[in-house]
Design a protein around this nucleic acid. Sequence first.
DNA 1: AAAGCTGCCAACCGCTTTATC
DNA 2: GGATAAAGCGGTTGGCAGCTT
Length: 325
Amino acid sequence: MGRAPCCDKASVKKGPWSPEEDAKLKAYIEKYGTGGNWIALPQKIGLKRCGKSCRLRWLNYLRPNIKHGGFSEEEDNIICSLYITIGSRWSIIAAQLPGRTDNDIKNYWNTKLKKKLLGRHKQSNNRSNQDPNVMNGADDTEHSQGLSNSALERLQLHMQLQSLQNPFFFNNPALWPRLHPLQEKMLQNLRSLDGNANPLLPSRQLEQEQPIPSVTLQQDYLNGISSSDVSVPFVTENNLMADIVQSNNAGIPPVSSFHAELDEFLNNKTVGLAQMTEFDCFKEMNGSKDNMVWWSNGAFDAKSASSNSWESEGMFQDYEMGYNM
DNA sequence: AAAGCTGCCAACCGCTTTATC
DNA sequence: GGATAAAGCGGTTGGCAGCTT
């Protein structure tokens, strides 16, 4: 038995909003607010619209200070950084970009930014096909049935940036940081799908080849640091995010090399072998728990933070999906 | 000039989370 | 603590505009 519809589908209007409807909704909300009940709102003002539709229209279009289009490079950087870090949590990403809506950012990512990043790398990687340690472009996604596109994209972006920016580092597995077991598992799964021949993924020995229950993995991930190896912090998304956002909130240029490199990358600057600064996203994430202050420092509303924080089980879905294959 | 293609974006759908009783 | 309703969220779709052939 399904859930009851929020409104009478037959009697509500669908499709684009007319200027009259916009004016009605805007005038009412500006005067009285939403009254805490979107469902009842359209009836109050005589709109033949679903409450959800009204809410969406207000949030994405009518709300004051909404910006449309014209994303700046700084915004590109933030979106890209956060996407790599947390995936398609558009509401969280939007919370870091004043005036932007989650829908806007989502559309922008899907139609432009993703192509700008993955597309360009596809070209650059085609030129370096001879090197099995250098990854291919986004098309390899097709070979990875079962893995979420979001997780895969993020992984690809991580690694593509690594390989582009620092071939020396990338070709020397000994220099690689220790990954979280989940991340290792994802890499291994990706490799195994291609019979280990997928040039997207360089071969890398797992240090400990033993099955880990997903519950344990989740717990480890929540802890951020392995209880058995405190000296080598795992790659956590939180720490990178804290860096990215703290830089942004302070209104100062980003201090992280990740940001700088990403900025350079987005601006299509050439990076040669001579420029071997250690571009290491992972290193950026080796912060302390203090970095977590971002989550509660008012950078975005606490409700959003709580409902979307790492303690939400959903964040592990991508990883688990890969692990459980 | 017109048909087909592609990119973009507003809006919808349905699932999940949160709040309330 | 469970049931229900509302809100929030992310994925998907439909339609329009501009471009290509």
